[in-house]
Computed example of a mutant assay.
Amino acid sequence: MTAQRGKDLLVKVHDGVTYATVAGLRIKRLAFNAETVDVTDAESAGRWRELLGGAGIQRAALSGAGLFKDQASDALICSAFFAGDILAFQLVIPDFGTVSGPFQITALEYAGAHDGEVTFEIALESAGALTFGVL
C-alpha cells in the first residue's frame, strides 16, 4: 500500500437516506481497542500472564475536528448529541475499506477566534457491532 492522502479518509453519517460526509472534517482518527481477560493462576507456566482469547470487550473510538460545511450537517450532529441518539456512521479508509456501524456522539466542542472561522471537535464511541467492507 502506498501513502494515502489524509483528506481521503472520510467520516460519513446516515442521514435517513444515504451516507453523507460529516461536515468539513480536517482531522480524523479511528482507534480500535480490545480489553483483555486475564486468566493467570498459580499453575500458569513460568508465572507468565495468560489471556482468554475472544472474551474481552471490543470498541472503536472515532474523533475529528474541522468546520461544518452547512446548516443541515450541523443540525444533524447537534440534535443527535443533545438527544443522546445512536446514529449509523461509516469511515471510508482509502485503498483499504469501510468500517460501518452504530456510534454515539460523546463529545461536541465548538471554538472560534475573533478573526477566524468557527471550528468544532467531535468524539464518538461505538455502540454495537461494527462491520468491515473491502473497497
Rank of each mutant, 00 (worst) to 15 (best):
V13P: 00
Q58C: 14
A83W: 04
A55E: 13
F89E: 06
E117L: 13
G16M: 05
P94Y: 08
E125D: 10
A83M: 07
L135R: 06
A31V: 09
L25E: 05
A75T: 10
K12R: 11
L135V: 06
D95E: 04
Q90E: 15
L51P: 00
G116A: 14
F81K: 12
T106G: 00
L30M: 11
A60E: 10
L67A: 14
L130T: 01
T131P: 00
F82G: 08
A61K: 15
A42W: 03
S126W: 07
R26C: 10
K12T: 04
G16A: 04
A111K: 03
E35P: 05
A72D: 15
V92Y: 06
I122Y: 06
A45M: 09
V37R: 04
A45F: 12
T21S: 06
H114A: 12
G101F: 04
A42K: 11
T119N: 12
V39A: 04
V17D: 05
I27C: 00
A3Q: 11
D85Q: 07
R59T: 15
E121V: 05
I93V: 11
W48A: 09
V39S: 05
T40K: 03
T36H: 02
A123Y: 00
W48R: 14
A3V: 14
V99W: 09
M1I: 10
A20I: 10
F96M: 05
L10T: 02
A113H: 06
L91A: 10
E117M: 11
L51K: 06
L62M: 14
Y110T: 01
A45T: 11
Q58Y: 11
A75K: 10
T2Y: 10
T18P: 00
V11L: 11
K12A: 10
A3N: 12
V134P: 01
S73P: 00
V118L: 12
G112I: 01
A20R: 15
L10I: 11
G128P: 01
G116K: 11
Q90I: 03
R26Q: 13
E121T: 14
Y110H: 12
A61I: 14
D41I: 03
R5F: 12
A23G: 15
G101V: 03
Q4A: 11
T21I: 12
Q58A: 14
I93R: 04
A107H: 01
Q71P: 02
V92F: 07
D41K: 03
Q71M: 04
P94W: 09
A123G: 05
A88H: 08
L76E: 04
L87W: 03
A55N: 08
F103R: 08
L10W: 02
Q71R: 13
V99Q: 07
L52S: 11
G101D: 02
F120A: 03
V134A: 12
L124K: 02
A61Q: 15
F32C: 02
D74G: 03
C78V: 09
T36G: 08
G133H: 01
A61G: 15
T18I: 02
V118K: 13
